[in-house]
Design a protein around this nucleic acid. Sequence first.
DNA 1: GATGAATGAGCTTTCATTCAT
DNA 2: AATGAATGAAAGCTCATTCAT
Lengths: 190, 190, 190, 190
Amino acid sequence: MTIDRRRQILDAALSAFLERGYAATSIADIRARSGASTGSIYHFFSGKGALAEALLREAVSGWAKQSTAALDPAASPEAALKASVRGLMLWGLAHPAQFRFMDEIRALAPADPDFSAVRDLLDDGQAAAAAQYAGMTRAGAVRNIPFSIAYALILGPAYAYLRRAGATSEAEATRLADFFAEAAWQAVKA
Amino acid sequence: MTIDRRRQILDAALSAFLERGYAATSIADIRARSGASTGSIYHFFSGKGALAEALLREAVSGWAKQSTAALDPAASPEAALKASVRGLMLWGLAHPAQFRFMDEIRALAPADPDFSAVRDLLDDGQAAAAAQYAGMTRAGAVRNIPFSIAYALILGPAYAYLRRAGATSEAEATRLADFFAEAAWQAVKA
Amino acid sequence: MTIDRRRQILDAALSAFLERGYAATSIADIRARSGASTGSIYHFFSGKGALAEALLREAVSGWAKQSTAALDPAASPEAALKASVRGLMLWGLAHPAQFRFMDEIRALAPADPDFSAVRDLLDDGQAAAAAQYAGMTRAGAVRNIPFSIAYALILGPAYAYLRRAGATSEAEATRLADFFAEAAWQAVKA
Amino acid sequence: MTIDRRRQILDAALSAFLERGYAATSIADIRARSGASTGSIYHFFSGKGALAEALLREAVSGWAKQSTAALDPAASPEAALKASVRGLMLWGLAHPAQFRFMDEIRALAPADPDFSAVRDLLDDGQAAAAAQYAGMTRAGAVRNIPFSIAYALILGPAYAYLRRAGATSEAEATRLADFFAEAAWQAVKA
DNA sequence: GATGAATGAGCTTTCATTCAT
DNA sequence: AATGAATGAAAGCTCATTCAT
């Protein structure tokens, strides 16, 4: 009988955040869209920030799944790096609104104390990626440059493209993902 | 004797936006920092959004000055393109807080109706840049790819780097600017 | 234990409107008089206009009860018409402050967009009354004049008197009501 | 060269009051419509209330001119009384917006301290009229009823009609004025 | 006479959050 | 698990009015 309230709330929150932006979305909006009561929302989530965080966690994990190969320790540097970029692109092109939501939260995070956890979440990949890049550098596979720069060269174009991208067919998405993956590899290969 | 209240208000607003973020800054913050009264602020600006817009306009024009060479019609494609990237990098590294302010507004713009004008402002350079790139393409100087992609390849890395950058010495800034300019050229040259 | 907050708010609003006038009453006044919090007021009513509307609806229904006989389909034209006037007079003399509140809202309604619903409410009786008068005209009971004129002749004097009336004893009220009812009948009878 | 600023301000204020209502009109509205500066407005008028008062005084005097015959000491009671009603009707039908402005101010007056002077102004005619009616009563020309009631019978219908009236042709206005004048006389003649 | 910058109290309204039921 | 009434601080903004020039 009872449906998954938690799920309903998350779905409603996501739709509101995507449509109106995080800052402009009120708990009342989420209440109206979810059909849940105010109290119910607070029963499951400690506040608006926690909702955003939960959604972001889902988004990031969805994106991570697209990039699995990147984490395959047996993969070649080229394959791993390209898989990273391809994963970001495919996920971002498939979910443009979610990408923009992520981007909004990222921009708000430095100022909003609600988002210290989110910042960590978004930075989480960084440490691992930095370590991986260091390994590739030692193996002589990529240019020996600071990771902060390498990161910008590898993912910067994809981010910039996605920020302006709209709905994209799957075929086109694959082509774009391959293109940006190749460009990323060219930018940092030794 | 008479001080420039408008200027004082703008300065106070900028300092508050940079320090606390746009969303977290209240008119009361600006009032306290500027010494002007609430009414005075509204006498000069129609609201918080208008303040942000005015500041953004100033920021963009400051940045544009750094990139003048990019607009020199006599410059070679390579020089023009590199000057664009170098201009963005030098300005962003010299004013990291302003860059992040710009980034926050850009992220907020799609959702906030206050910022329709801002979106246009930030997109303004686009048309000119697209035309310029088209010219370079016809001249065979750069890769024949859609401008939206070229734009991501050229400026994406710089944006990504600046989003995470902190204070940087001038010498280091020059080196970084040159580095990203060169990388941008390599990414799109024919 | 639990008190009827909605009722408390309405009562407080009415007392404030009657005492200070609608325009001069602030939400803070109502908050102070009702003991409810600002948020509570907005939880039940969408704003000052909605409060006035709710109160007006109550007032109008109270007045309508005084005029029931006017709606008795079996009543003679003379009885029906007199009951209308008598009802207005008795209600207005018994509640002079409410009458003036109604009058203020009516005067504000044309200019204030909050009150489009109120205007309709106040005009509502009109259509029914016009139909009734048309019937009386066909029956040859009253003068064959446009309803807008008949309306002014019938209720105009009562309105004009009530606008300046103060507290009145019940006996005096009955006498006045009868007097204006008789005058109204004399003014329009065939 | 210099035009009559005072006049411009009055005209602008009237147009604003008529269009948006007194309460909803701000000094800024009047400034914008008149072309005068804020300071200029306050140079001529002590505030919003004083502006309304000045306009009301003009309106009342315009109306008074229409009713001159009413004040002719030689006129018969019937002629005097009818001239009063006819004057109100003709002026009100010729200036429906001004009539409604007057009505709004009258409704606001009891609550707004700005308008003590206005109340007196609107009541001014009363004392003279009451004396005149007392004279007619003594002469046996009209019913021996309290003036407050007689006033309601005489002018109530005209007021009620004018509150709902729109633009009216001059011929129609004359007919209506005569009609209401006759009705007023019938209502109170001995 | 005329200007418009400056004031600041006061307004309506929104909102995340709490809590008794 | 669920409700929704209640809270009250804080927000953005308006406005009549003053006053130095």
